[in-house]
Simulated assay, not measured.
Amino acid sequence: MRKQGHRSRAGVAVLTAALLGVAGCDAVGGDSAGPTQKPSPSARPTPAWDSSPGSVAAVGDSITRGFDACSVLTDCPEVSWATGASTKVDSLAVRLLGRAKAAERSWNYAVSGSRMADLSTQMAQAASRAPGLVTVMAGANDACRDSTAAMTSVADFRAGFEDALSVLREKAPKAQVYVASVPNLKRLWSEGRTNPVGKQVWKLGLCPSMLADADSLDAAATARRDTVQDRVEAYNSVLKAVCAKDERCRYDGGAVYDYRFGTDQLSHWDWFHPSVDGQARLAEIAYRRITSVT
């Protein structure tokens, strides 16, 4: 009886030890790996930003076309901040690729006068090149309308930008995107209104929602300009938010909006669009943002 009881107790001890060996580590917070789990989407690594893309395509409006930088009411893409070849600007493409390569591996699909609704068409053209980087500068013409009532709604602006990015992603899923903020139109009015020649050009219909009755400071004119400015700020919030959802997109953090264009940086034809010097400043802003490690 004692012998049989001893064997029974020994068996129970062995069984208990075996069970504890299986479950004990987890029970006391040990190093058992436990069941394998798939990483959550948020834990997956995001693609590294390439600060040296092999090609650059530009989309947007008159600013990217160098409008009024060289002569009145005329595009001058050779001084474009994004892709121009001018040594006076050292465009983003030249800074990233070198002058010789930029001539072969950069393309400007921006169109003067275009609004956000037009961006998808341009983006399709850019995507066909399978670019390493696409630059986006659009939105000023959505605010520069005949009246504040005619300005593009924030919802439509968002839909247009989202559609443009989806067009790019369908054809060029790995292309990086640099998004410039919409310039501070009210500051441009404030700087340009000091020049009588510029104000005469404004009367030809340049951004009437902001520039009409340039010298008027009454309540109605002030309210109109403030309404335009509020819409520009709302557009920039959209650009920031939509870009943040795309892992290969960088917004400029409001750098273009915050840049204080002076008379040297404004076209001496219309005192509203960037001059050659202004284009160079835009290229600097973009280059710093794109080559930043964060």
Results as ranks from 00 to 15, higher is better:
128 S>P: 00
90 D>F: 02
224 R>G: 04
52 S>T: 10
261 F>Y: 12
72 V>W: 00
39 P>K: 09
277 D>L: 09
187 R>I: 03
64 T>E: 15
235 Y>G: 08
251 Y>I: 06
182 V>N: 10
275 S>H: 14
89 V>E: 11
288 R>A: 06
141 N>R: 12
65 R>L: 12
8 S>M: 04
203 K>E: 10
263 T>C: 01
180 A>M: 12
137 M>A: 13
208 P>Q: 07
175 A>Y: 01
215 D>V: 12
34 G>H: 07
192 G>M: 13
14 V>W: 06
183 P>Q: 13
156 D>P: 01
18 A>D: 05
170 E>R: 13
115 R>H: 03
251 Y>Q: 05
16 T>H: 06
261 F>W: 10
287 Y>C: 07
229 Q>W: 05
31 D>M: 11
154 V>Q: 06
172 A>I: 04
204 L>S: 11
207 C>I: 04
147 S>F: 12
158 R>G: 02
231 R>A: 09
77 P>Q: 14
188 L>R: 07
204 L>N: 04
191 E>G: 03
208 P>A: 10
105 R>G: 03
78 E>K: 11
88 K>P: 00
106 S>G: 08
150 A>N: 07
246 D>E: 09
176 Q>V: 01
95 R>P: 00
189 W>C: 02
217 L>T: 09
212 A>N: 03
202 W>F: 08
152 T>S: 12
143 A>T: 12
231 R>W: 07
91 S>Q: 12
294 T>I: 08
236 N>Q: 06
31 D>V: 06
166 S>K: 07
161 F>T: 00
16 T>V: 08
86 S>T: 10
248 R>T: 11
257 Y>N: 15
214 A>F: 04
267 S>V: 13
149 A>C: 09
230 D>R: 08
44 R>V: 10
250 R>M: 13
237 S>V: 14
202 W>Y: 10
271 W>N: 09
59 V>T: 13
49 W>K: 08
47 P>F: 00
3 K>W: 11
72 V>G: 07
193 R>K: 15
172 A>F: 03
208 P>H: 06
217 L>V: 09
2 R>Q: 05
198 G>V: 09
218 D>T: 01
170 E>C: 02
170 E>T: 13
69 A>S: 15
140 A>V: 12
294 T>V: 09
178 Y>L: 15
156 D>Y: 04
89 V>K: 10
193 R>N: 11
176 Q>E: 05
272 F>Y: 15
5 G>S: 08
217 L>E: 03
154 V>H: 04
275 S>M: 12
143 A>N: 10
102 A>C: 07
55 S>Y: 03
234 A>H: 08
212 A>S: 06
117 A>V: 07
63 I>V: 15
200 Q>F: 07
50 D>N: 13
212 A>H: 00
273 H>G: 14
127 A>K: 03
141 N>I: 08
93 A>C: 11
